[in-house]
Measured scan of single mutants.
Amino acid sequence: MTSCHIAEEHIQKVAIFGGTHGNELTGVFLVKHWLENGAEIQRTGLEVKPFITNPRAVKKCTRYIDCDLNRIFDLENLGKKMSEDLPYEVRRAQEINHLFGPKDSEDSYDIIFDLHNTTSNMGCTLILEDSRNNFLIQMFHYIKTSLAPLPCYVYLIEHPSLKYATTRSIAKYPVGIEVGPQPQGVLRADILDQMRKMIKHALDFIHHFNEGKEFPPCAIEVYKIIEKVDYPRDENGEIAAIIHPNLQDQDWKPLHPGDPMFLTLDGKTIPLGGDCTVYPVFVNEAAYYEKKEAFAKTTKLTLNAKSIRCCLH
């Protein structure tokens, strides 16, 4: 018999989150649709729960009410004593943790798909938090293969000092899905179709896995975050240069030392320094102006996964 890495157990509980950011409308629209008619997301033997994560922000069509829901799922915020004085999103995070967690427990949901849009030209993107997770690498390989020839990129946010504390991190297997470009507060049919297909293929993978299909060893190309880059700023902290036209919409493309990065209003080009080629992502993302992030630098690498098969009882 072929030796293989056996994944822990079959997958039982899956959640699909929309509206973690209330103005990213593809996930909101799909989740609302699936709450009314969820036939397309159901798979035999699998509990799939669509869920609106930040209903107040969705109602106002804004990213958040008090603070970013997708950055506060750490033990400090989840452990705060519940009171009306807490920011709305912290209270909501505790409610979500109660419903789908608790985080880092045996009772937490197996998989959470968190649906997002970006204003950046990132196409279909899967966000991975753990480079050693054979199950998710296999799932992402399946999704990428199923979507081809449509490109699907994998963004690895594993980093020693950049801690995200994402909404989906309460699950055993957290999956971020990011599709763009799409303006905030807008629905685009092409973007919706791409996100819908990503979810379909992900659920198909889980179904095949649960039925005992063995997935042979595989490898995927990923883009691992190195650092986030702020806009150049003046002495008052105001933005002093904008994304250069040569960099705009060039997510995932190589940016070499000396290539144009920013452009000042008086026409001066600010190039990339250093001696390493990087791959920019979230270029000129609207939501990241407040976070002082013009783009993120990534490096390209390959992740390998062992063969996996479900432990059938």
Rank of each mutant, 00 (worst) to 15 (best):
S3R: 13
S3G: 14
C4Y: 12
C4K: 14
H5D: 15
H5R: 13
H5V: 12
H5A: 14
H5F: 10
I6N: 14
A7D: 15
E8L: 14
E9Y: 07
H10V: 11
I11D: 04
I11M: 09
I11P: 07
Q12N: 15
Q12I: 00
Q12M: 06
K13W: 01
A15R: 02
A15Y: 02
I16S: 02
I16K: 06
I16F: 03
G18Y: 05
G18C: 02
T20F: 04
G22I: 08
G22H: 08
N23M: 03
N23T: 06
N23Q: 06
L25C: 14
L25A: 15
T26E: 01
G27L: 03
V28W: 14
V28A: 15
F29Q: 15
F29W: 15
L30C: 03
V31E: 04
K32R: 11
H33Y: 07
W34E: 03
L35K: 11
L35R: 09
L35Q: 14
L35F: 07
N37Q: 09
G38W: 09
G38K: 11
E40R: 04
I41H: 00
Q42M: 10
Q42N: 11
T44M: 09
G45L: 00
L46E: 05
L46V: 12
E47K: 12
E47W: 07
V48Q: 02
K49P: 06
P50Y: 04
P50M: 00
P50S: 07
P50A: 07
F51A: 06
I52M: 11
I52G: 05
I52V: 11
I52C: 08
N54I: 01
P55S: 11
A57R: 05
V58Q: 06
V58G: 05
K60D: 13
C61L: 12
T62R: 13
R63M: 09
R63A: 12
R63D: 07
R63G: 10
Y64F: 14
Y64W: 13
D66T: 08
D66N: 10
C67H: 11
C67P: 06
D68N: 07
L69S: 06
R71K: 14
R71N: 14
I72E: 12
F73L: 11
F73D: 11
D74I: 09
L75P: 14
E76V: 12
E76S: 12
N77D: 11
N77Y: 11
L78S: 10
G79K: 12
G79H: 15
K80Q: 14
K81D: 13
K81L: 14
M82P: 14
S83Q: 13
D85W: 11
L86D: 12
P87I: 08
Y88S: 07
Y88G: 06
E89C: 01
V90W: 10
R91C: 14
R92S: 07
A93F: 12
A93D: 06
Q94M: 13
Q94L: 13
Q94A: 12
I96E: 06
I96Q: 06
I96W: 05
N97E: 12
N97G: 09
H98G: 13
L99G: 08
L99Q: 12
L99N: 10
P102I: 09
P102Q: 10
P102V: 10
K103D: 09
K103L: 11
D107T: 12
Y109V: 08
I112W: 02
F113L: 08
N117F: 01
T118G: 05
T119H: 05
T119L: 03
S120Y: 04
N121I: 00
G123W: 00
C124M: 13
T125M: 07
T125G: 08
L126N: 05
I127G: 03
D130G: 02
D130W: 00
R132I: 00
N133G: 05
N134Y: 10
N134S: 13
F135E: 03
F135M: 04
L136Q: 01
L136Y: 03
Q138V: 05
H141Q: 07
T145R: 12
L147S: 01
L147D: 05
L147E: 05
L147C: 08
L150C: 11
L150T: 14
P151D: 09
C152Y: 05
C152Q: 05
V154Q: 03
V154C: 08
V154I: 11
L156I: 05
E158R: 00
E158N: 07
H159C: 10
H159F: 07
S161A: 12
L162H: 15
L162M: 14
L162T: 15
Y164W: 12
A165W: 09
T166C: 10
T166D: 08
T166P: 12
T166F: 08
R168D: 08
S169V: 03
S169K: 10
I170S: 06
A171K: 04
K172V: 00
P174K: 15
G176N: 08
E178I: 15
E178T: 15
G180A: 00
P181R: 02
P181K: 04
P183I: 01
Q184F: 11
Q184R: 10
G185R: 02
V186L: 10
L187H: 03
L187Q: 03
D190R: 04
D190N: 09
D190K: 02
I191E: 05
I191P: 00
I191K: 03
L192G: 02
D193H: 10
Q194L: 12
M195W: 04
M195T: 13
M195V: 11
K197R: 12
K197G: 10
M198F: 04
I199N: 04
K200T: 11
H201T: 07
A202C: 00
L203R: 06
D204H: 03
D204M: 00
F205E: 05
F205R: 04
I206W: 06
I206F: 06
I206N: 06
H207D: 10
H207E: 14
H207L: 11
H208D: 15
H208I: 15
F209P: 00
E211H: 10
E211V: 09
E211T: 13
K213N: 10
K213G: 07
K213C: 13
P216A: 09
P216F: 06
P216H: 05
C218T: 07
E221I: 02
V222I: 02
K224Y: 02
I226F: 11
D230S: 12
Y231T: 01
Y231R: 03
R233I: 11
R233N: 04
D234K: 09
E235V: 10
E235Q: 11
N236Q: 11
G237E: 06
G237S: 06
G237L: 00
G237N: 09
E238Y: 05
E238V: 07
E238D: 13
A240L: 08
A240M: 12
A241L: 00
A241K: 00
H244N: 04
H244S: 04
N246L: 09
L247W: 04
L247R: 04
L247D: 05
L247C: 01
D249L: 00
D249R: 02
D251W: 03
W252L: 09
K253A: 08
K253W: 01
K253D: 00
P257K: 00
P257E: 03
G258H: 08
G258D: 10
G258A: 08
G258Q: 09
D259S: 07
D259E: 09
P260A: 09
L263V: 09
L263M: 11
L263H: 03
L263G: 03
T264N: 06
L265F: 15
L265M: 14
L265W: 10
G267F: 01
G267K: 06
G267P: 01
G267H: 07
G267D: 07
I270E: 02
I270T: 04
I270L: 09
I270K: 00
P271V: 11
P271S: 11
P271R: 12
L272W: 10
L272H: 15
L272S: 09
D275C: 08
D275E: 11
C276F: 09
T277L: 07
T277Q: 06
Y279A: 03
Y279E: 05
P280W: 03
P280M: 01
V281L: 09
V281E: 03
V281Y: 03
V281A: 14
V281G: 02
F282K: 14
V283S: 06
V283Y: 05
E285F: 04
A286F: 07
Y288K: 13
Y288G: 15
Y288C: 15
Y289F: 14
K291E: 10
K291L: 04
K292P: 07
F295A: 00
A296M: 12
A296Y: 08
A296T: 15
A296W: 07
A296N: 08
A296P: 05
K297Y: 07
K297G: 00
K300V: 07
K300W: 00
K300L: 09
K300H: 01
L301P: 03
L301M: 14
L301A: 08
T302F: 09
T302P: 02
T302G: 01
L303F: 00
L303C: 06
L303W: 03
N304G: 08
K306Q: 13
K306W: 06
K306C: 12
S307F: 01
S307I: 00
I308H: 00
R309N: 10
R309M: 08
C310N: 13
L312C: 14
